[in-house]
């Protein structure tokens, strides 16, 4: 089970991320789970998902974007954004867009290649929870949220830029 943290502590993880290659039969085989399903799966198997007895959330890969789920996203309890590799910065923009453009109020989770040294910026862009890569130490990761006392920009975490606070 991958370790999950929020900005303060290690938390239990009720969700399972479904791999991109998974077929719909898994819904039959594994009932009653809370799945974060890939966007394509979610689009293709709406009916099967409606009948499923566990909770369902969606994850977007870094080359997908929130516009593709803009009509339905408010019904989702959680949207996960994937970092296929930590140096792929697109999910930062996706997180910000979910919050600012679509006013998404649910949980935004970072999944994939989620490492200690990118956590501070992720939190600034609107991520709430972080499924850290298996080799990352949770204690070390939790320190990341204090890397900076404040920043110059207008962010999701601090919408008022420094020049309006000075």
């Amino acid at each position: 089970m991958p370790k999950l943290i929020n900005k303060n502590t290690v938390i239990t993880n009720p969700w399972t991320v479904m791999k991109a290659s998974t077929g719909p039969e898994i819904l039959q085989v594994v009932p009653g789970k809370n799945f974060i399903v890939p966007l394509q799966f979610w689009k293709l198997y709406q009916e099967e998902l409606n009948e499923y007895d566990g909770n369902i959330a969606v994850w977007l890969d870094s080359d997908e974007n929130p516009e593709q789920i803009s009509d339905e996203l408010h019904s989702l309890p959680l949207i996960a954004l994937n970092f296929p590799v930590f140096s792929d910065g697109r999910s930062y923009t996706n997180a910000r867009e979910l919050r600012q453009k679509y006013a998404f109020k649910g949980e935004i989770r970072a999944i994939g290649d989620v490492l200690r040294d990118q956590l501070y910026y992720m939190a600034q862009c609107g991520f709430d929870t972080f499924e850290i890569r298996h080799d990352q130490e949770a204690e070390l990761c939790l320190q990341a949220f204090n890397d900076f006392e404040t920043g110059y920009q207008s962010t999701v975490a601090e919408p008022v830029p420094l020049f309006r606070r000075r």
Binding site: F86, S87, D88, G89, Y92, T93, R96, Q118, Y120, Y121, M122, Q124, C125, F148, G151, Y152, Q153, T155, P161, L162, F163
Partner: peptide, 16 residues
Amino acid sequence: IIRQWSSFHPEFAYLP
């Protein structure tokens, strides 16, 4: 003004 905006910009630290 641009220096401050661009320094530690959390969204644009991993550009293409």
